Amino acid sequence: MAVLTTKAIVFSSIKYGDTSLIVKCFTLEEGIKSYMIKGVLKAKKGKLKAAYFQPLTLLNLTASHNNKGNLNSIREANVYSPYERIPLEIKKQSIVLFLSEILSSIIQEEEKNESLFNYIETALIWLDTHDEIANFHLLFLLNLSKYLGFYPDTSNSSANAFNLLEGSFTTRAYEKLTLVDVDLILFKRLLGINFDTIHTISFNKKERQTLLRVIIQYFELHLEGFKKPKSLDVLETVFS
């Protein structure tokens, strides 16, 4: 059994019994790891607090990894970049719950992926500290596809359609699973931008919902077993 100190992002926590949690984290050093944290829901003292294991909390962990596919254990934990505004703002909370559900379902590898970790970490800190966040989840998901290997090929972006299955622009606008007209215009506005230029694009409620469902469909086509998140409706309600 190896003892490791690593940064980690909490993806999910599930109550186990009356007093314990099973927590899934994306660690910087070893990818996805799951931990049993016994007694944390009743502990008044102790090193570990239940508040540490809220969705997408940024932690430093010292943990024992058994590498046998069993649940691991956490010896120590602390929050290395506490959120100041996410806990206080319902829109940001809704985004965090939505993204934690998606990340938990699509990232499964028990191996180091430093660039993906850094992308998620940087994006979350940006979300906490900025005001114009209505389109954050759209850009987060689209740019996440870079790290998952299916970011849209923009080499022919003047074409009049985008094939969601092939992930590229096309002149064959009549085919199934292609974006054309208004949907295409909305989609193209997100391509090639980063969080610091997100204020330059604006979508109304209907456009935002359309674009989110397009991106969800894009993920469904490119990730085997990807399911529409349960928290999608909540997110759409908050931003309506």
Rank of each mutant, 00 (worst) to 15 (best):
A2C: 10
A2Q: 15
A2R: 15
K15T: 12
Y16N: 13
T19W: 12
L21K: 11
K24A: 11
F26N: 04
T27R: 00
T27S: 09
T27P: 08
L28M: 10
L28Y: 09
E29V: 06
E30H: 12
I32M: 02
K33G: 08
S34E: 13
S34C: 08
M36W: 03
I37N: 05
K38T: 14
G39A: 12
G39E: 12
L41N: 15
A43I: 13
K44H: 10
K47R: 12
L48P: 10
A50D: 07
P55I: 04
L56H: 05
L58S: 00
L58F: 08
T62F: 03
A63C: 11
A63D: 04
N67Q: 15
N67L: 14
N70C: 09
E76N: 08
E76G: 07
A77M: 02
A77W: 10
N78S: 04
Y80T: 03
P82H: 07
E84S: 08
E84L: 15
R85K: 15
P87S: 06
L88T: 15
E89P: 03
E89C: 10
K92N: 13
Q93D: 05
I95P: 02
V96H: 11
S100V: 05
I102L: 12
S105W: 00
E109L: 07
E110I: 04
E110R: 10
K112G: 08
E114L: 11
L116S: 03
E121W: 06
W126Y: 15
T129P: 01
T129M: 12
H130Q: 11
D131F: 09
D131S: 12
A134C: 05
N135S: 14
N135M: 07
L138R: 02
F140I: 05
N143M: 07
Y147V: 05
L148H: 03
G149K: 04
F150Q: 04
Y151K: 07
D153C: 02
T154M: 13
T154E: 13
S155W: 01
N156F: 04
S157A: 14
S158W: 07
A159G: 00
N160G: 13
N160K: 15
A161R: 01
A161E: 03
F162I: 08
N163P: 01
E166Y: 02
G167V: 01
Y174F: 12
E175M: 07
L177M: 09
V180K: 09
D183Y: 05
L184Y: 08
L184D: 03
I185T: 11
L190D: 07
F195T: 12
D196Y: 13
I198W: 01
T200C: 11
S202R: 14
K205F: 14
K206A: 15
R208T: 11
R208Q: 09
Q209V: 08
T210G: 03
L211D: 07
L211R: 03
L212V: 07
V214Q: 01
Q217Y: 00
L221P: 00
H222C: 00
E224Q: 09
K227L: 04
K227D: 01
K228W: 06
P229S: 06
K230V: 02
S231R: 04
S231A: 06
V234N: 11
V234C: 01
L235K: 13
T237S: 12
T237G: 04
T237K: 11
V238I: 15
V238A: 10
F239G: 14
S240P: 01
